[in-house]
Design a protein around this nucleic acid. Structure first.
Length: 534
RNA sequence: GGGGCCGUAGCCAAGUGGCUAAGGCAACGGAUUGCAAAUCCGUCAUCGUGGGUUCAACUCCCACCGGCCCCUCCA
């Protein structure tokens, strides 16, 4: 099955075909680094990281660029406010951003260009646009003239004239058209500035992406990604500039991820929605208050949401967060909140149980298993198994196909995770049926069959970038220091004796006491296991 | 006012013009257990409402109701 992707440009799924066979160029709009990253900033990176993993798994050589915008009005304002320089602020916030990416396992980014290092390239594009008549200088600024671009608005489905009719966009004196946007902004004294043919200034918001994408990936890139909120005006303008400049398609596929919403806390916003047109003057205040509330509900509001570290990672393991983000379709909006993450944490708990169980059954460490890194390699492994007629093997094969089919279909990670849950069930059943944790331990054939199945689980998990390491906040027997471990063994053996002599009250009191300390005991035929809950 | 998205069980959520509508959480029943835990099995949806197209729609079209996003800095 070929890979199919949904492109915003055509509003439908298309068969994925790259400019250059076997290679993929991918550009994701990164952050403007003027404040600490919030969880919403992580959605795109996690999703596109997963997309890159899957494309690489599928045999493509992928080059992924995420830019850092380190010059911008917001940056200037914030730096002044904090009494620091734009440069220092940008550096600090970039570190914060990178730190969060690392935590979430986003490690597939190949280039992270800084806007300020591509001023030259931006100026070349601007000069080219002026020359071709798509742009005009105006008192130290340069504007892109939207009406000169015949298909302006094609990405976001807007019609220029209708757009202008509805909006009350402020028109700067001299702009040919209210929709014209700045390619270059003349600077006031004290602001960061670069020399240019149009006077000292700084780049407009959109031009950086056009310049960096072109420089690093070429005139036509395969995948351009970003949050849905960037579709207009940012991507629309980027596209207009780039295509007007090069005369070639800017991106083959435009992928937009849905935005996060804050769930829980704020509650729902008013039930009664009056139309804006027929609001009495007295109600205006209410409307404004409601607007304000809506702003706060949005994670990206100008208020500045809590940083990821304090808001999320303090409470939840990054693996949980990543799994949560991938459990729904990347194009859907998602309610983000503690309740939801807690549910995810619970739902993936069983995977860690399985991993531990595998360790006990085979004596092998899941995290250091070597598994196929590409689909081709994996195909060879699973083609060979066709001769073995175990129903277990057939189940594995079917689940593998289900997972890969889901990913082929516009990176449907939600459906893919469902296959993972079923795979978990299959593996657990196999362990139980073959008594691999009890007297079936010596069954070498069954052990290797389990090894095979668990390897598949790891292979598929790797594609999503989950279950790459044990949960940090949990430890199972052996995970703590020697002292704790010894104490636990002592308690367990004392309790075992009580149980042997049917002194269940004592045994249960021990367990109850441990439960209060967030330690859970599992009495199994082979012995008692313990683990700490988060 | 203009552009776009969504509405699937108590909750989250995938998906399809026609076989039994994934998966997770919760709940309930069962196997297992001294009791638990873990694991497994089972139960739990006429797919917002009303029309239309079709042999056939939850899936396509229209209307309505409800929710959301963009049009202003936003991942």
């Amino acid at each position: 099955m070929p890979i199919r992707v949904y492109s915003t440009l055509t509003r439908q799924k298309e068969e994925f075909q790259t400019v250059e066979p076997g290679k993929v160029s991918m550009y994701l709009c990164g952050p403007t680094v003027y404040k600490p990253a919030h969880i919403g900033h992580m959605v795109g990176p996690v999703i596109f990281d997963t997309i890159k993993r899957y494309l690489a798994y599928s045999g493509y050589q992928v080059t992924w660029v995420v830019n850092i915008t380190d010059v911008d009005d917001k940056l200037i304002v914030k730096a002044n406010e904090l009494g620091t320089t734009v440069e220092a602020l940008a550096r600090k916030m970039t570190e914060d951003y990178l730190d969060n990416l690392r935590t979430l396992g986003v490690d597939g980014i190949d280039h992270m260009p800084y806007a300020t290092q591509y001023i030259q390239e931006m100026q070349e594009i601007i000069a080219g646009l002026i020359e071709k008549g798509f742009a005009y200088p105006l008192d130290g600024d340069v504007y892109f003239e939207c009406t000169k671009d015949a298909d302006y608005g094609k990405l976001s489905g807007r019609n220029l004239t209708e757009m202008l009719a509805g909006t009350r966009a402020e028109t700067r004196d001299g702009k040919h058209n209210p929709a014209d946007f700045a390619l270059w902004k003349g600077s006031k004294p004290g602001e960061p500035a670069w020399d240019s043919p149009w006077g000292p200034g700084r780049p407009g918001w959109h031009i950086e992406c056009s310049a960096m994408a072109r420089k690093l990936l070429g005139d036509t890139i395969d995948i351009h990604g970003g949050g849905l909120d960037l579709m207009f005006p940012h991507h629309e303008n980027e596209l207009a500039q780039s295509e007007s400049c090069t005369g070639k398609p800017f991106a083959r596929y435009w992928l937009h991820n849905g935005l996060l919403r804050k769930s829980g806390a704020g509650g729902k916003i008013g039930g009664d929605h009056s139309r804006h047109g027929d609001v009495a003057a007295s109600q205006t205040a209410d409307i404004l208050a409601e607007k304000q509330a809506q702003e706060e509900q949005k994670l990206a509001g100008s208020k500045g949401a809590e940083s990821v570290k304090s808001a999320v990672f303090a409470k939840f393991d990054p693996e949980t967060v990543r799994f949560f983000l991938l459990a729904t379709h990347y194009r859907s909006p998602v309610d983000f909140g503690d309740d939801r993450l807690a549910e995810t944490a619970k739902s993936i708990d069983g995977f860690y149980r399985l991993i531990e169980s595998f360790g006990r059954a085979t004596g092998k460490d899941f995290y250091s298993l070597t598994v196929p890194a590409t689909r081709a390699e994996s195909n060879r492994v699973w083609a060979a198994s066709a001769s073995e007629r175990l129903s277990y093997e057939n189940e594995l094969t079917a689940l593998r196909t289900r997972f890969l089919d889901a990913m082929d279909d516009d990176f449907n990670t939600g459906a893919a995770t469902a296959a993972l849950f079923d795979l978990r069930k299959t593996l657990n059943s196999f362990i139980t049926d073959q008594k691999l944790e009890a007297d079936g331990k010596s069954n070498i054939a069954a052990q290797s069959a389990l090894h095979r199945g668990v390897s598949l689980f790891k292979e598929l998990s790797n594609i999503l970038g989950v279950f790459r390491k044990p949960l940090e906040k949990k430890s199972t027997g052996g995970g703590d220091d020697e002292f704790v471990n010894s104490l636990m063994q002592l308690l367990i053996s004392l309790r075992a004796e009580a149980r042997k002599t049917k002194q269940f009250e004592i045994a249960d009191n021990v367990r109850k006491g441990l439960t209060e300390l967030k330690v859970t005991l599992e009495d199994r035929p082979e012995g008692t296991l313990w683990r700490r809950e988060a």
